[in-house]
Design a protein around this nucleic acid. Structure first.
Lengths: 187, 187
DNA sequence: AATCGAATAGTCAAGTTTGACTAATCAGGG
DNA sequence: CCCTGATTAGTCAAACTTGACTATTCGATT
């Protein structure tokens, strides 16, 4: 996630309600866990930075005897920026090219049997996450925008399960070819 | 893309052939463009770091009168690390939760007509990229591992196009509901 | 033969990100 | 009433990332 989307997300939340950093982070963890991996430290940094830019205003609050905390509220400049970022986000498309499947390119460097086992572990991980997403889907209003986002993540996981099957098939073929053509097995 | 996958990628390439940084970056841009967004500076940094860790060895080379360049070769320690990283990569799954669709959550904050236009721009972008991927797919050996990776990216784009249709339908419904229930239109 | 632009091969400062750490408060058990 | 572990609310140094920049060489053009 890049800076712009992070700002968009935080501004969007502050627009709904003024909050302090910890509260924001709690909200992110509770409700947006499956969508973003915005770390607490990063959120604090982003808030400070936005405060310096005048997009949000912080005012210190003393609750009981706790360390004073900064309550952030969106400013008019922040509102304008919010709209800009929202427009940019809706009109753009860059699905982080994470190359998290780079290992596939080097699949042939491992003994096929081991590769098969490792891929089975990967499959289990995907399935696990998918189950969690399905459970979460039951809990959100089917007409909400959140549901749309969940739907996307769900399908991505389903797609990756299917794709993994093809990788496994590919591995099987490679294995068969290796055994087949009368070549002496190496010692 | 995180550090580990970056190291895996660079080690994997250096295993095939010793190279200098610029050469690596060229290769990445030419052949792995659609898979990774590893920036040149980042590659240089990662190489230095791996050299410091003893995973690769650099030796300076003077070609003609050009500035001396560092030729990197993988070391035995690098080979071991390569296998570790490959195993970890194959067995893991964390599709960067980029929240690049975060804007959808705030879709209702824009006039529906404008939202529709912005989403149309997004659709055009996806289609564009998909076309490039399809073209690239024709050029790679259908039996290669690269083809598998391309296939995955392709389907992701197709999925996002389908998903976008649903977002548009959702927007349409929201728009209809707004018009419908005898509510006085606000001035 | 001087020049202009592209390619080669990086370097670096400025900005970003995060894991580890701090420090106070509260809730509950012994 | 004191201790312990969880929760609250961050801070910070160290590591990572990248856009902007440098400096040389080569090829082609005028």
């Amino acid at each position: 996630m890049d800076l712009q989307n992070r700002q968009l997300l935080l501004l969007g939340l502050l627009r709904i309600q003024t909050m302090h950093g910890y509260q924001l982070n709690q909200f992110l963890e509770e409700h947006l866990d499956f969508m973003t991996s915005l770390k607490p430290s990063t959120a604090y940094y982003t808030l400070e930075r936005m405060a310096a830019e005048g997009l949000v205003e912080a005012h210190a609050e003393q609750a009981g005897n706790r360390p004073t905390r900064q309550i952030y509220a969106i400013t008019p400049a922040g509102e304008i920026r919010y709209r800009e970022l929202l427009r940019r986000n809706l009109a753009s498309y860059d699905p982080c090219e994470s190359a998290d499947d780079i290992g596939i390119a080097f699949l042939a460097d491992l003994p096929p049997e081991e590769a098969r086992q490792l891929l089975a572990e990967k499959r289990a991980l995907i399935q696990d996450r998918l189950d969690k997403i399905l459970a979460a889907e039951d809990r959100v209003d089917a007409a909400s925008a959140t549901h749309l986002s969940l739907e996307r993540v769900k399908r991505q996981h389903q797609l990756d399960l299917e794709w993994l099957s093809e990788v496994e098939a590919w591995l099987e073929r490679a294995l068969a070819q290796e055994a087949e053509p009368g070549s002496a097995p190496e010692p």
